[in-house]
Design a binder for these strands. Structure first.
Length: 443
DNA sequence: TTGACTCAACATCCTTTGCTACAA
DNA sequence: TTGTAGGTTTCCATGTTGAGTCA
């Protein structure tokens, strides 16, 4: 006979199970709560009777209406998730209806459910979908709201800070934009929830730091995967990607070369290389206590800025805005400064993290209605924001990540009627070219 | 309730396009 | 030709967000 209990994110057992540790404080064996299903399975296989007191005060599942009709691939995704023990990550491109798959899962399982999302915006979007599609009463936790219900939407931050208290209240947890989960704090949060049923949703599972290998442990393996290329022209818009190359001005080139050579000289002098991310991190560490290293790193920052924001890009943009003078366009930049400069130069509205919530809402609304035809944004629209359809995206600068690239592309693919076009303007022969090469999704 | 503020957490950050560099 | 990769860690910058505090 074994007794299972929950205590502040931990699973407490009075009999040893593989992976559990003895706690002198609790006078029992403990492991993180997410091992609940595994531990139970172990004792069952050993033929041990289980007294299970883990889940307590779980909010009752509300009454719902289930009239959801899934598309073939959505059905496939859900089926393969169920077959893998109701655990795992579903990868679908933006606009392919990940939410619908999750709502169907909620409707099928009918267990107390927690939906974890990265932003308040997404929290509202999910809550609305649950109300409208499942006709269910929905709880929300985050952004000053605190209402628990049998289906509750919560931010990652709140799920983290309230994990001890909420960890044994939900049998089913859905992690939206699950690529956030492997970070240090959030992965700990995932471990503190006992939920045996887990679903991760994302369009871009891979992380730059390689921590996506943590999915099988935290949520389950990738159980279904489709990319934009599988759906283009069918459920989402078909699209073209165009790369336009420009050259820096002489002045920019002189400055760029000077900065790069400063960096190179420093590296040679110290017998360092900059070939991997580790090399780069070494330089960063060095820069925290070494003046020369700091200057070298600043030279690197500055040179990158020159290449990414070159004047020739702005000139090219001017041409493109003329060429596509009747289309709805979003311009993406890397720096906020360039975003503001473009806004002034072309008299177009700008959105960055400095833009107030109200103003952002107003700009997006006017863009939706067609009052504004062109808007410029820094990296704010890369995720989780419900950006109205545009059919042309012009990338002036960004990170070297496929994630950002795909998210930005996703902004153009919501409607399937029009052909979308993503134009990338790249400064030839510079680090900007490198970044573009790295993110290029057809590698 | 709001708005302005601060703080903490998270993410990116690498290769002069192209194939590592070196010791045993 | 072949095999193997120096921290023992807490961060130069900038961008972005959620939460908490206080008026």
């Amino acid at each position: 006979m074994v007794t299972l209990r929950y205590f502040k994110g931990l699973l407490v057992l009075d009999v040893y199970a593989p992976g559990a540790k003895w706690s002198d404080e609790l006078k029992a064996y403990i492991t993180y709560a997410y091992k609940y299903a595994e531990v139970k399975k172990y004792f069952r296989s050993e033929g041990v009777d289980i007294q299970d007191y883990v889940f307590d005060n779980t909010p009752p599942f509300p009454s719902i209406v289930d009239e959801i009709k899934l598309r073939d691939y959505q059905f496939e995704a859900l089926r393969s998730w169920i077959l893998r023990g109701k655990r795992g990550v579903i990868v679908l491109p933006t606009g392919a209806g990940k939410t619908i798959v999750a709502l169907k899962a909620i409707a099928s399982l009918r267990e107390s459910t927690l939906v974890v999302v990265p932003t308040i915006d997404l929290m509202h979007q999910w809550a609305n979908s649950i109300r409208e599609i499942l006709k269910a009463d929905v709880g929300e936790i985050g952004g000053g709201v605190d209402k628990v219900s049998g289906i509750t939407v919560i931010t990652y931050d709140s799920a983290y800070t309230r994990a001890e208290e909420l960890g044994n209240k939900f049998f089913f947890v859905i992690f939206d934009e699950v690529h956030h989960l492997p970070s240090e704090g959030y992965s700990l949060m995932a471990k503190m929830y006992a939920a045996p049923h887990r679903m991760g949703l994302t369009a871009t599972p891979e992380r730059e730091d390689g921590k996506h290998i943590m999915y099988p442990d935290l949520v389950g393996p990738i159980v279904y995967r489709k990319g934009v290329e599988d759906f283009a022209g069918k459920y989402i818009a078909s699209f073209d990607i165009k790369k336009v190359y420009v050259k820096m001005t002489e002045e920019e080139e002189r400055k760029y070369k000077e900065l790069r050579s400063n960096l190179k000289k420093f590296l040679e002098k110290r017998n360092l290389t900059l070939r991997s991310l580790d090399d780069f991190n070494r330089l960063v560490r060095l820069a925290s206590k070494d003046k020369e290293a700091r200057e070298a790193l600043l030279a690197w920052h500055e040179s990158l800025k020159i290449a990414v924001n070159s004047k020739a890009k702005v000139d090219k943009l001017k041409e493109l805005l003329k060429e596509f003078k009747d289309e709805k366009i979003i311009i993406f930049t890397r720096d906020t400064q360039l975003a503001y400069d473009l806004s002034k130069l072309f008299l177009i509205p700008v959105v960055t993290y400095k833009t107030s919530k109200d103003e952002r809402k107003e700009i997006l609304e006017k863009f939706r209605k067609g009052v504004y035809r062109v808007i410029v944004a820094s990296t704010v629209f890369d995720e989780g924001v419900d950006v109205p359809d545009a059919n042309i995206g012009i990338v002036l600068g960004g990170y070297g990540t496929k994630r950002q690239y795909l998210q930005r592309l996703g902004r153009l693919l919501r409607g399937k009627d029009k052909n979308a076009l993503l134009i990338e303007i790249i400064t030839k022969g510079t680090a900007d070219y490198k970044l573009s090469k790295r993110r290029s999704y057809i590698s």
